[in-house]
Amino acid sequence: MLKPVDVLMVGVGGQGTILASKVLAAAARAAGYDIKVSEIHGMAQRGGSVVTQVRLGEKVYSPLISQGEADVILAFEELEALRWLAYLKPGGTLIINNQQIYPVPVLAGAAQYPENIIDQIKARGINVQVLEATKQAIACGNAKAANVVLLGALAQKLPIEEATWRQALAATVPPRFLEVNNAAFTAGFTAATGSGAGC
Results as ranks from 00 to 15, higher is better:
residue 163 A to P: 01
residue 111 A to V: 12
residue 89 K to I: 00
residue 25 A to Q: 04
residue 4 P to Q: 11
residue 102 Y to K: 14
residue 44 A to Y: 04
residue 182 N to F: 12
residue 129 Q to W: 04
residue 120 Q to A: 10
residue 193 T to N: 07
residue 64 L to T: 14
residue 12 V to S: 07
residue 55 R to P: 02
residue 190 T to C: 08
residue 76 F to Y: 13
residue 157 K to L: 15
residue 171 A to E: 14
residue 116 N to M: 12
residue 71 D to P: 02
residue 165 W to D: 05
residue 127 N to W: 04
residue 113 Y to F: 14
residue 48 G to I: 01
residue 190 T to L: 07
residue 5 V to D: 03
residue 49 S to K: 09
residue 81 A to P: 00
residue 166 R to G: 01
residue 139 A to L: 15
residue 57 G to W: 06
residue 67 Q to F: 00
residue 116 N to S: 06
residue 126 I to E: 01
residue 180 V to K: 10
residue 131 L to D: 11
residue 2 L to G: 00
residue 72 V to E: 00
residue 75 A to E: 05
residue 23 V to F: 12
residue 178 L to V: 03
residue 3 K to Y: 12
residue 176 R to F: 10
residue 51 V to N: 01
residue 69 E to S: 07
residue 56 L to E: 08
residue 159 P to R: 08
residue 59 K to A: 04
residue 158 L to D: 06
residue 53 Q to A: 11
residue 165 W to K: 07
residue 175 P to R: 11
residue 143 A to N: 08
residue 23 V to T: 11
residue 138 I to F: 08
residue 29 R to H: 12
residue 111 A to F: 12
residue 154 L to C: 11
residue 74 L to G: 02
residue 91 G to N: 14
residue 92 G to E: 00
residue 36 K to G: 04
residue 66 S to A: 15
residue 71 D to N: 15
residue 139 A to P: 00
residue 87 Y to P: 00
residue 46 R to F: 01
residue 135 K to Q: 13
residue 112 Q to G: 03
